[in-house]
Amino acid sequence: MLEVNDLHAYYGKSHILNGVNFSMKEGEVVALLGRNGVGRSTTVKAIMGEVPPQGSIRFRGEEIAGLPNHRIARKGLGYVPENRDIFPTLSVRQNLELGIKNTRRPGKWKVEQFLEMFPNLAQRADSPAGVLSGGEKQMLTISRTLMGDPELIMIDEPTEGLAPLIVKQIGELISEIARAGVSILLVEQKLSIAMDISHRVLVMGHGQIVFEGTPQELRADEAIRKEWLEV
């Protein structure tokens, strides 16, 4: 479904991605792990065109490297950035409604469904989204991207800085997305929810993929964990 081949990216003169290769199958949940600064976020940003990509990115057989972000999104690729970019002046409901790409062709996710799933959002449905807590904002951004019916969703550090109870809730939401048949690329620093939810794990180091395997294999491989993950 998604094939990334020899992907390079630069911030100014620094070479951040140094030939990233990986692929994802339909319905697969893949975790992209690694320490801060190894290029995990840059990988998803390059796929969305937010950082200019060099190399090949194919989505459902089509080359998408370098397309404007709205065209990539319309091909069925959803992206939830790490800074929880909610629209603060719009209401919670309006945030969700803006996730819909085409109002004449409603998708499988409904505004009411998310409001039912997250009573906190329902309570504030008509208040400006700027007043939400960090966890609520995270629920809202993921839900908003789902409103656009993506076939693959890339979620960048959804649990960063959140309380354990909220992390658990986000884990449940991600499992729910997987059950709906949506492929997920989950960018995380910690192993916690990634290890329970993912079918496959990628570990990054120095702008490259340095490990690829199942969560069980990563658990068993202490050397990889020591070298690339543990602080």
Binding site: M48, E50, P68, N69, H70, A73, R74, G78, Y79, P81, D85, F87, P88, T89, L90, Q94, E97, L98, G99, K101, T103, R144, T145, G148
Partner: peptide
């Protein structure tokens, strides 16, 4: 209006409006 919502969203978060599939340019 929906266009108005898009404009207000793009006032602060233009890139995100694009990530949702709306043609910001």
């Amino acid at each position: 209006t929906r266009v108005g919502m898009m404009i207000r969203a793009a006032l602060t978060h233009g890139a995100m409006v694009g990530h949702l599939g709306h043609n910001v340019p």
